[in-house]
Each structure stands twice: as C-alpha cells, then as structure tokens.
Design a protein around this nucleic acid. Structure first.
Lengths: 355, 355
DNA sequence: TTGTACGCGTTATCAT
DNA sequence: ATGATAACGCGTACAA
C-alpha cells in the first residue's frame, strides 16, 4: 500500500504522547479528513450536525493542526516574520513592535518568527533570501532601515513573500506601508516649543538612512519656516537613535557659545541623553533647557524629569501590519495606512527663562 | 504515478521563483536525494568526491532545506522557542535574552519563534500545550516566572519538548538551568554598600514569584547579617520589577521618618524609579542617597546619574541556553550552568553624608 | 455536502 | 557508500 494509511491502526490510543492528527479526529467523528480540514479552516460547506461532531472530536483530542504539515501542503504557512536590523534589534521601538505583533498573532492563531539580518553586509539579499526560502512565511514585517533597502525588497518580491513596511522613507510601487505622519508630528512638536517662546531650538537627527528620521527633520524645518525662524546648521546635529549618539550630539549643542533654549531629539533615547548631559553642564531642566523626545517609549517616563514627547502608536501599527498580512490585503493593491500621533507634554519642557 | 516525481520536469529552470528542492540538487549532482540529505546534514558516510559534487550543486542552486518538510519528516525541527510571560515581554531583560538567542540561532541555522503566554490564566498548561503541539519545537527557553510554574513544566514534559530554564527558583529533577548566582551577587552589592559606610540600606524586592528575586533578597539579608546589621522589615519593600512599582516602593522608603542612606533595588528599572522619586524629595544622588540596581540593562546607563549595578551576562546566558538545546544535552542528564556576575560601580553610589 | 487519493520536501528504513 | 521508497500530517483537485 502506498498511500497514507491512518497511523498506528492497532493501538487506538495507547499512552502515545504524540499529538492527535487529523486522522484521529476524522475517525472519532466518523468523517473523512477532508471534512475535518474544512471545519478547522472555517469553510462554509459543512453540515451543522457534522460540524458539531467534528468540533467535539477536536475538543476531546485537543487536536491542533500541525504547523509543518500545513506549511508544506499549502503555500500558506502560519508564520509571520519580523525582520530586524541587528543594531536596532534591542531597541524599545522594536520591542514594542514585537509586542504588538505577538498579541495579534496570538489572537489569529499565527506565530511569530524573528530573524535578525546584518544590514551592513553586502550579502544582505542572500540573507533575506535564505530566510524566506527555508520558511515560506505567510508574510514579513519590515522596519527601517531594512524596508528601504532595495536588496531586501527585491529578495522578498522575487520569492513572492508578502511584506508590510513600517514607516518607510519612500513609497514603493507594490508595497503596503503602515506609518504615522512623522513630518507633521515633528512639525507639531516644534511648533509647540515655539509656542512656549523658544527661538533657538536644537535638533538631534535620527539615523541618516531612516525615512522617519528624514521626515521629522523636514517637519522641524517647516515649523521653523512657518514661524519665521531661521534654520541654523549649528543647531541641527546628527544622531543615530542611540543613547550614546545622543550624548555626543547634546555635548555639541550645549557647548555652543549661544546654546539653544530647547532641544528636540528624534527619539526618546537621545532625549534622555540630553537630560544626562544637561546635568553635567549644570543646567536645570526645564527652566534652563527644554527637552523633547519622540516615541513615548518606556524611557520617556523613566527618566527625570519625564519627557515631553510625541507618542507613536507602535503596538497598534504592528497589529495593523499583521492584520494586513493575514488578510492578504496585498491582493487588493498597494496602500498606505496612517495612524495618528499625539503630543504628550510632561515635565521636561517649559517656557525659556527670561534672560 | 503515485510517487513524488521531480517537480516540473519539462522546464528545467524557467523563471520558476520556487526555491530549489532536494530533487533538483540530486539531479544536478547525479545522486539520490538521500545522498543529498546526508551531505546537508553532515553525516559521515559519503564519499569525498560525491560530497563535493553535491555541495557544488547546493551552491549553484542556492538550495536551502525546507523548514516545514524537515519538521514534518523528523521529530526534530529547527525552531527554538522563547516562551515569555506577557507582562515581562517588553522588558529590557527579555529583549537582551532574545538578542542572545537570535545570534546563536543564526549561527547554527536555527530559527527563533517567540510566543507569549498569560501566566495569570488558569488554562496556562493548555496554552503551552497548544503551542508545542503545533510546532514540535526543537526546544524552548523559559524565563521567570514561567519556569517555576508546574503547569508549564508539565506541559512541556508531557509533550517531550526539551527546555532550558533561565534563572529558575527551584531545581527540578530533569531540568537544565542556566543562571548566575543571584544570592551571591546581591550579597556582593550589599556588602559593597556596607563597605561605603551605609548602615540603613533599603531594599526593593522583585516580583514575588521570581526565583531570582528571592535569591537576591537572601543575599541582601546574608550580607546584613554578616556585617552584624539588623534586618529591618520597614526597609524592605515589595516591588514588581517594573518602573511604576519602583516609584511606589521608593516613595514608601523615602517617606520613612528615618530614611535609608542607600537603596538597593532588585533591577535597574526600579532603581531608575528611585532616582526619579529622589528628585521629587529633593535628595541629591549620591550625596544624600546612594542607589544601586541590578542587571546593567540599558536604563542603567541612560539615567543620570548612571546606576551602580550588578551586571548579569544575559545575552551569554541566552546563547548558552540555545547551545544546550541544539546539542540536545538533555540526554546527558540534568545540570546547572552558572555564569558569573560583575559589580559595576558608577555615579549613583557614594559614602553616606556625615550627619 | 462529503470523500478519495495525490503532492508538498524532507528524514528514515531498509536494501544493495 | 549509495539508492528506492515509505512515512510525516495536511490541503486540495476531483470525484461522487
């Protein structure tokens, strides 16, 4: 006999710890495996009575469809991938993203597989290709700067792996993007600082190849222009989204002969660094220096004074991304999903001291 | 024909984006699939010449064994699971753990699948069972408090899923544990504070059901006893490893009529909270209050002043755990792997002010 | 509405 | 040392 026969026909259910298979369920419910499959996958063409019997059997045997068998039999696996650049892997941003993905995956019966790739290496495309080749993912979520690297996008497209990009820099012909309006968010924050009376506002940029970082810089400049304030090169320094880079950047800003009365950093980690540097420069926050961050990550509330920042609904964005992937929305064409940001005012900002 | 025939026989290699299968490799190398399998899995019984031919074919077709097929055919999958309790999922601790796992997995050709479970719910065992049932993991890594919950352990054992526990509270007959010596670590820190001259040392406990938290408390008490100092209930308050719980705990400690001159918190997040509360109480750190944390996580260096803390090699622990799982060391019996901690002295601690 | 039988890409068991 | 072929558990044309 060369076909799949129901496994282990002799001993019905010994102390075999092996999880029940679809055959076990079929036998117990007195139906074919196809019918079980239909019920499990929520297909409609099943009789009510039959469905009930099957569900009972599923329950009784606590049957769970095997992930590998499913992945093998259909192109569709139940794995969602999170691809992240190694330097960013441990950041609060990625953690939050992952939490959001996790919760949605759980709810939908999918699983999360996390993979780190080294965006610096030249074999990036191969890294990605290798990853999707072995695992035929249902879809993957991409963050900066990966989502803007042609090598990554091409590798994914050539293997026909659906993907959603979080906060990419540039639109792409066929891609689905989830984001907030970083430009407007930064514009809002800058305008808020200007509204407090600040005229010299320092800005710490995010990593150069991150799209959101660029958009925030634009927003900062736009707000300045709108208020009739000049954009000063010396007030705008490069950061890398890391705490350490924030230290360096803030040292430069605070060493200026005419130092700024406020500093807006592109994320909370760097803003926290500004706080630390201020201490060393003996500057009172917020009296002598206002500090604003971005993200509203954990650190924003952990430092003292707590950071005024711009909340980004990262978890929601992640959940949206996963949902899109699961619904295979790609087949409905590319689109962009924009969630809204929110200014969170805390103790790190205030009007500048009357000098 | 009812057997597996080499897929798509007509067009050798059209623009078929489908990854090469073992059949493609076998054909190109003029061997059977079994031989390919042998080479890929590094089995010894293959002729040198044959092996070379196969490897070339693998290279040329950039063949990667399909994850699902492997998982289906053998009990052994190439997935390592990280099971984490939902409240802890976003912590720096878990992030660091994950990074360590990721790097080791990558190096060994394994993949990381992350799953969150709700340790509070009564169906915890089922949650775990469901997870391992679908995915037949190669092994899973467990953290507190999950690693000490009988429901979790039993679910894993009954499904014969190997697991390694990180910093569990109690030893278990068949389990492999990776840890530092939390008791000694806390002992060292407390002794260091005593050495600075502190006599009233507050202690903020970690989550009650975490084994490491308990061990640290023991170390604190032991150091006190060793120095002939009394253990005072009022100086020892409950925390939950979260920043917020640290706020509450520190408020209680600093509201004491006779407040402590130093506070040792069970992790960095809570220590950071002590810093924040101190600001509100107008206490200079470290002059009027010394603060010490545990873990040496990111926040320890992000706050100001930077925290004196006890470094725990979390990433290393994670890597060790994965390696153990991959080597199937379980077959060599249970054991405990102990890594070493390190006292990291920064600006948050100093001798108490002469009063 | 329900069932049969094949294929997915591996590993594993036996031959040779 | 190598190869033919049966599982593995599921989805799915196709048939009934």
């Amino acid at each position: 006999m060369k076909q799949n026969s129901p496994p282990s026909p002799p001993r019905e259910k010994a102390k075999t710890q092996k999880p029940a298979s679809i055959y076990d369920v079929a036998k117990r419910a007195n139906v074919s495996i196809k019918t079980v499959s239909r019920v499990v996958n929520h297909l409609s063409n099943v009789g009510d009575e039959t469905r009930k019997r099957v569900m009972e059997a599923v329950e009784a045997l606590s049957y769970r469809p095997n992930l590998y068998a499913r992945g093998l039999a259909s192109e569709r696996s139940f794995l969602i991938g999170l691809l992240c650049d190694i330097p960013a892997a441990g950041s609060g941003y990625v953690s939050a993203l992952q939490i959001g993905m996790l919760s949605r995956c759980r709810k939908e019966g999918y699983h999360l597989i996390v993979e780190s790739v080294d965006g610096q290496k030249s074999d990036l495309g191969d890294q990605v290709r290798a990853f999707v080749a072995v695992s035929r993912l249902h879809g993957v979520v991409l963050t900066s700067p990966l989502c803007d690297l042609p090598a990554v996008v091409e590798a994914l497209e050539s293997s026909r792996t659906p993907f959603v990009r979080i906060a990419p820099e540039k639109p792409l012909p066929h891609s689905i993007d989830v984001r907030i309006d970083d430009r407007t968010a930064a514009y809002d924050m800058t305008t808020y600082l200007i509204g407090l009376g600040h005229r010299r506002i320092g800005f710490i940029k995010g990593t150069a190849d991150h799209g959101d970082a660029k958009a925030r810089l634009e927003g900062y400049r736009a707000a300045l222009a709108q208020a009739g304030l000049p954009f000063l090169e010396e007030l705008c320094v490069q950061g890398q989204f890391t705490y350490l880079s924030g230290i360096e950047a803030s040292e430069r800003l605070l060493s200026l002969k005419k130092r700024p009365t406020a500093i807006f950093a592109c994320n909370d980690d760097m803003a926290a660094a500004v706080l630390a540097t201020s201490q060393r420069f003996n500057l009172k926050i917020p009296q002598q220096l206002s500090v604003a961050g971005f993200d509203d990550s954990l650190v924003a509330q952990v430092v003292w004074p707590r950071l005024t920042t711009c909340r980004q609904p990262i978890e929601e964005m992640a959940q949206a991304a996963v949902s899109i992937l699961i619904q295979r929305s790609a087949e409905q064409g590319p689109f962009e999903k924009r969630l809204s940001h929110e200014l969170v005012v805390r103790e790190s900002t205030a009007p500048p001291e009357a000098s």
